[in-house]
Amino acid sequence: MKILIVDDFSTMRRIVKNLLRDLGFTNTHEADDGLTALPMLETGNFDFLVTDWNMPGMTGFDLLKTCRADPKLKDIPILMVTAEAKREQIVAAAQAGVNGYIVKPFTAAVLKEKIDKIFERLEQK
């Protein structure tokens, strides 16, 4: 399972990377905003995207919408891990096709639960 972690703060990328490693996902790659993430997603054959919302360049929300509009990336599971906590934002992300939404600060258990749920759902399809 090849995973791309997108966050503008290197410490947060490291935290997510470490948590994913503990969950058994070792093939992780990093990008610091949507603009650097997109070309990686286009060519990298990623299976899963974990992204922050608030980033310079291109936000995670725009990255989400761009992926869903891209025939190659429209089905990639996307988990948002963000400090953005407005109800309208969560609704907007859901409508844009996000697969999971985690608000920071979060725990390892929450990350595991959401990832399990996303893949459980994908298997049902």
Partner: peptide, 23 residues
């Protein structure tokens, strides 16, 4: 939907969630 960053006064606001359970 402009990003706002961490909510400092979540208890005083009705338009934000206060944690993962509410999400």
């Amino acid at each position: 939907h402009a990003p706002e960053g961490p909510i400092i006064n979540a208890e005083e606001r009705v338009d934000v969630v206060s944690g993962q359970d509410e999400v």
